[in-house]
Lab assay of single mutants.
Amino acid sequence: DYYEVLGLQRYASPEDIKKAYHKVALKWHPDKNPENKEEAERKFKEVAEAYEVLSNDEKRDIYD
């Protein structure tokens, strides 16, 4: 669930989505996790995908 990936509720505002994305993206950035790079890359891609969908009103409506 994209909301879960970003740690958000379904009623999150666009500002909340952006803030959550930056927080979680920093947490899972591969450069910040050199000891667990493969998992970090996978999680970072999930976070980016979730943000791409939830930050676009049209894609978010379809997802919801």
Rank of each mutant, 00 (worst) to 15 (best):
F44L: 14
E15I: 04
Y2M: 13
R60C: 00
E15C: 06
W28L: 14
L6M: 09
Y63A: 05
R60L: 02
A12W: 00
V24K: 10
L54V: 02
K59I: 04
Q9P: 13
D57W: 08
W28P: 04
D57G: 13
Y11L: 13
D1Y: 11
R10P: 15
H29E: 07
K43G: 03
K59P: 03
A48L: 01
A50P: 00
D64G: 04
H22F: 12
L26H: 12
N33K: 07
A48T: 15
P30Y: 04
H22S: 12
N33W: 07
V5M: 14
D61Y: 13
A12N: 03
Y11K: 14
H22N: 14
L54I: 06
E49M: 11
E49C: 06
K19V: 13
E49N: 08
A12D: 03
A50L: 00
A12Y: 00
E58C: 11
Y11D: 15
K27H: 10
E38S: 13
E52C: 07
A40W: 03
V5P: 03
R42P: 02
E46T: 05
E58K: 12
P34W: 11
V24I: 12
D16Q: 07
R60V: 04
N36Y: 06
W28I: 05
V47Y: 04
I17M: 02
K19N: 15
I62Q: 15
R10E: 11
D64M: 03
D61P: 13
P34G: 11
E4H: 15
I17V: 15
W28T: 08
Y51S: 02
E52A: 12
L8M: 03
L6C: 01
E58Q: 15
E49V: 09
G7F: 02
K32I: 05
E4G: 12
V53K: 03
A50Y: 00
E39D: 08
N36E: 06
Q9T: 12
P34S: 15
Y2F: 11
L6I: 02
R42H: 08
Y11G: 15
D16L: 02
A20P: 00
A50H: 00
F44Y: 13
R60A: 02
D31E: 12
K45R: 13
E41C: 08
E52I: 07
S13Y: 06
Y3G: 02
D31T: 08
Y51N: 02
D61E: 14
A20Q: 07
Y51K: 06
Y3P: 01
P14L: 15
E4C: 13
D61W: 08
K23W: 05
V53D: 00
I62R: 15
V24P: 02
Y2L: 15
E38F: 08
L8T: 11
Y21N: 01
Y63S: 04
E46C: 06
E41H: 10
Y63F: 09
E41I: 07
V5N: 03
L26S: 14
V53A: 06
I62D: 15
R60T: 03
L8R: 01
Y11C: 14
E46I: 11
E49A: 10
K27Q: 09
D1V: 02
D57C: 13
V47Q: 04
Y21A: 05
V47F: 09
F44Q: 14
R60Y: 03
A48M: 14
N33L: 04
K27F: 07
L54S: 02
V24D: 04
L54A: 02
L6F: 03
E38Q: 12
L54R: 01
D61Q: 11
V5A: 14
L26C: 13
L54C: 02
N33H: 15
R42K: 06
V47T: 09
V24N: 15
K43R: 12
D31C: 06
D16G: 01
V47M: 06
E4M: 04
E38T: 11
A20C: 04
Y2P: 14
S55T: 10
P14H: 11
Y51H: 05
R10A: 13
D31V: 05
E4L: 02
E35Q: 09
A20L: 00
L54Q: 02
E58T: 15
I62M: 11
E41V: 11
N36A: 10
A20R: 05
K43P: 00
R42W: 09
Y63P: 05
Y2G: 03
E58H: 09
R42C: 06
V47W: 00
R10L: 04
F44N: 10
E35T: 10
Y51A: 03
D61K: 14
D64R: 06
R10G: 08
Y51Q: 02
K19C: 11
K37A: 10
K32Y: 08
K43D: 01
S55W: 01
A48P: 01
D64T: 10
E58L: 10
D61M: 14
A12F: 00
R42Q: 10
L8I: 12
Y11E: 15
A50F: 00
S55R: 09
V47S: 05
V47R: 01
E39P: 00
S13K: 11
K59V: 03
K37E: 06
E49F: 02
Y2T: 04
E41W: 07
N56W: 00
P34I: 09
E38L: 13
I17W: 01
L6Y: 00
N36T: 08
E39K: 10
H29Y: 04
P30W: 02
D61N: 14
P30G: 07
A40L: 03
E4R: 13
V5G: 03
R10M: 05
K19R: 12
D64C: 06
R42D: 06
W28N: 08
K45N: 05
D16V: 02
Y21E: 01
Y3M: 00
D16S: 05
K43Q: 07
P30L: 06
L8Y: 00
W28E: 11
E46D: 08
A40I: 09
N36F: 10
N33Q: 08
V5H: 04
G7I: 00
P34T: 14
E39Q: 08
D61A: 14
N36R: 10
P30I: 03
I17R: 02
K32R: 11
K27I: 07
E46P: 05
D31W: 02
P34Q: 12
E39F: 01
L6D: 03
Y2S: 09
E58A: 14
P30F: 04
K59W: 05
K32T: 09
K19E: 15
I62V: 13
N36M: 13
A12S: 10
D31S: 09
E58R: 09
E35V: 07
E46F: 05
L54K: 00
A20D: 00
D61H: 12
E41A: 11
E4Y: 06
Y11R: 13
P14M: 14
R60W: 01
P30A: 09
